[in-house]
Design a protein around this nucleic acid. Structure first.
Lengths: 240, 240
DNA sequence: AAGTGGTCTAGACCACGTG
DNA sequence: ACGTGGTCTAGACCACTTT
């Protein structure tokens, strides 16, 4: 006997959940249309959408803008403290990675970045904006701000692969220490558009500021992930 | 000239944002009622609620269940890799911490925990469930699972303060290494109720599994944070 | 007792994606 | 061209909080 005040949309969430299990829908499969679902479950579109949003928040399903609802794939494990590239740890987990460079440019350091790096406003800086896929689902977009003094000519190379690897192998640059910040936020503007999600979709922000052995600014990474796309996993202390 | 397709609720979000700035509403202050806002901004309650939900997702405002909308305080900085207690780092940042023990018990290790710790199902285990406040806003609830073999009698002490500190000072237990997991999720059931938020509110899950020098299970922490409450901040590498 | 937020209905229009 | 998801309206009832 369910409690009387248990709202319809939560009942629907549960019924949808079991329905999805019964139908054995798998990763990336599409759900029926909202109108069809609202008929099938005997409610209005508004209410079924509330239930779908619940499942979205819980990470069971996701939506691609104006294209419908899909089953969310398993989360990607990610260790931001490790020095390996995206492609490496994605393939390591048996998935298929892809990176698209949306733009890259040589620009001048804006005030907010100057505050972080300690370098003067207007210092030349590389800016790369990329989108990363796992199994052809876009999971994150990423802004890279790189110190050109450390790696002249970087932008003329392809940036569709690991920037880490290039810095290491071609410029012998290895980050010595790093400040990492992580927090949930809403995906908005350019980031939401690039990931084909609605304005305000839940996301996770990861910020990595790297310095070299001399304590000089190497690179800043600003990653905007879908909230359901990853599980951060870090080992701290001895005994790796 | 705004683009024609710029939806009303996003315009409302922007207008609400500037309105809040103009009114100079501060941390924890209450917004007017939804009906009043919808009148003031010339729209319906449904649409104003959509705009409010946007601002909620962005972390500018939050709601306390059935009590209305409030301005979100500044995020708490938090380093899960450091060995200091909640009270310590909250006061360090000039805030006022409080911890409530919702229950504590000696129970038997369930299968899911057994898988994680490697200890057999049914092994005695302490279970503490606590709620933590900053400036009287409940920011997280936390399940602690502690190995009683390492600290007999722990439950008879007050658990309203730092468990870390007790383990260290009274039992001489210091974690040697730790597995940390972090990911966004929806707050549901007990966790949502305890934090007085709606089912499905965005949250952040932090999981810390600690072992001692012998590699034996010490403690498991499972923290459920409000999504807008914290900013994880970690330093990696040399030069602290 | 009054007012609030949470929920729900039964429609509607539009821009966009897909066939 | 059609159907879809995204948006929006104008109501309504209820449980709960606050006065």
């Amino acid at each position: 006997m369910s409690r009387a005040e248990y709202p319809v949309y939560l009942q629907l969430r549960d019924r949808l959940w079991t329905w999805i299990e019964q139908e054995q829908l798998c990763s990336q499969q599409k759900l029926p249309s909202e109108r069809e679902l609202s008929e099938r479950f005997g409610t209005t579109r508004v209410t079924i959408r509330q239930a779908l949003s619940q499942l979205e928040a819980e990470g069971l399903i996701f939506r691609s803008n104006r294209r419908g609802w899909y089953i969310t794939p398993e989360r990607l494990r990610y260790d931001p403290s490790r020095d390996i590239g995206f492609n490496h740890y994605v393939t390591e987990q048996g998935f298929s990675p892809r990176t698209e460079t949306l733009f890259k440019e040589l620009t001048e350091m804006p005030p907010w970045l100057s505050e972080i790096t300690g370098l003067p406003v207007g210092t030349p800086i590389y800016h790369v904006f990329r989108r990363r896929y796992v199994n052809e689902r876009g999971l994150l977009v990423e802004h890279n701000f790189i110190n050109p003094a450390k790696c002249p000519g970087l932008l003329s190379e392809s940036t569709d692969l690991s920037i880490w690897k290039m810095l290491k192998e071609q410029y012998d640059l290895v980050p010595d220490h790093r400040d990492i910040e992580i927090y949930p936020l809403a995906l908005k503007g350019l980031e939401a558009e690039s990931l084909n999600v609605n304005q305000g979709t839940a996301g996770l922000y990861i910020h990595r500021l790297s310095f070299d052995q001399e304590g000089e600014f190497l690179e800043l990474d600003r990653e905007y992930w879908l909230h359901d796309a990853l599980k951060i996993s870090v080992h701290v202390g001895s005994r790796h």
